[in-house]
């Protein structure tokens, strides 16, 4: 079974997980994800691949501890094993020389945007990295991102980085001052839809990495269906990247919340069992 090499808390509620998975490390490309299950009674969830080390044969993902599965993952230590760490799944992101690319990441997406920003940089683009955090102390991987970005912007709602604005304002500022050829956004659904709405008037192509509920992640179940340009797509095989201006966001919100009550019930049951 895949062995955990590292599991650390980066900032409150956000953790990094590095797992020994040589086959995945060898083949994965930016934009792909893995399906992870924390234990034998667990649920399968998708996590975007945030980094990899082909020589050491490890794959890294960053996640936010929210529900039962991610809480379980947040308690792993180096040396533990995972019953499932499968991939690389989904189609890789479209990377190419397009000019200037604005890479926007929020929350766990700060990590997920990293391989995309790196790949766009390597493809010869000017790369602006825009990171959104709710508060200054939630910023992580600053060094990694700053090192590869031509310009690095932090959008925060308190203190150090100033301002009370959410990310759309920064997106509009960037679009207003220079020509942007591509926007990519990774984060929670609200973050991605906000970025897509901010770029819609300009028509700049905006790719988002959708995160619907998945079960198998290989196209077998259809749990992850999303409507894009009026047609049903399976995010796991047709995506996870889609044109943010064509996504039916309202449907995605509703489907993401499908099991809200059950998720709370599950978490309560697990907490009672684990911390009686």
């Amino acid at each position: 079974m895949p062995r955990v090499v590292r599991r650390e808390r980066l900032v409150p509620n956000i953790h990094v997980l590095e797992v020994e998975a040589p086959e995945i490390a060898r083949r994965c490309r930016p934009g792909q994800f893995v399906i992870v299950m924390p234990d034998a009674r667990g649920e399968r969830i998708p996590l975007t691949i945030a980094d990899w080390d082909r020589d050491r044969g490890t794959v890294t993902a960053v996640f936010m501890a929210v529900g039962t599965t991610t809480r379980k993952l947040s308690l792993l230590s180096a040396g533990d094993t995972l019953p499932i760490f499968a991939g690389p799944l989904g189609s890789p992101s479209e990377i190419g020389p397009v000019g200037t690319v604005l890479c926007a990441g929020g929350c766990f997406g700060i990590a997920a945007i990293h391989p995309l920003a790196r790949a766009f940089k390597e493809a010869g683009n000017r790369v602006i990295v825009l990171i959104d955090v709710k508060a200054d102390y939630l910023l992580y991987w600053r060094d990694k991102l700053e090192a590869l970005a031509d310009e690095f912007i932090v959008s925060s709602r308190d203190g150090l980085y100033g301002g009370t604005e959410y990310v759309p304002r920064h997106v509009r500022d960037v679009l207003g001052r220079e020509k942007i050829d591509r926007v990519v956004a990774v984060g929670c659904t609200y973050f991605m839809s906000s970025v897509a709405e901010a770029t819609r008037p300009s028509g700049v192509k905006t790719m988002v990495s959708l995160n619907p509920i998945m079960v198998d992640g290989t196209g077998m179940c259809g749990a992850c269906r999303v409507t894009v340009d009026g047609r049903t797509k399976f995010a796991c095989v047709d995506g996870p990247d889609f044109d943010g201006h064509l996504v039916d966001w309202a449907e995605l919100y509703a489907r993401r919340k499908s099991y809200f009550d059950d998720e709370v019930r599950s978490l309560c049951a697990w907490e009672e069992e684990r911390f009686p």
């Binding site: 009674r41 667990g42 649920e43 079960v215 077998m220 179940c221 099991y259 059950d262 599950s266 049951a269």
Partner: peptide
């Protein structure tokens, strides 16, 4: 496929003892 996979493979019939609803 999804309905049966949740119930059979992921054992949703035993939720919340199993995590998949």
């Amino acid at each position: 496929n999804e309905y049966l996979t949740r119930v059979n493979l992921m054992r949703a019939y035993d939720f919340p003892n199993y995590d998949t609803p």
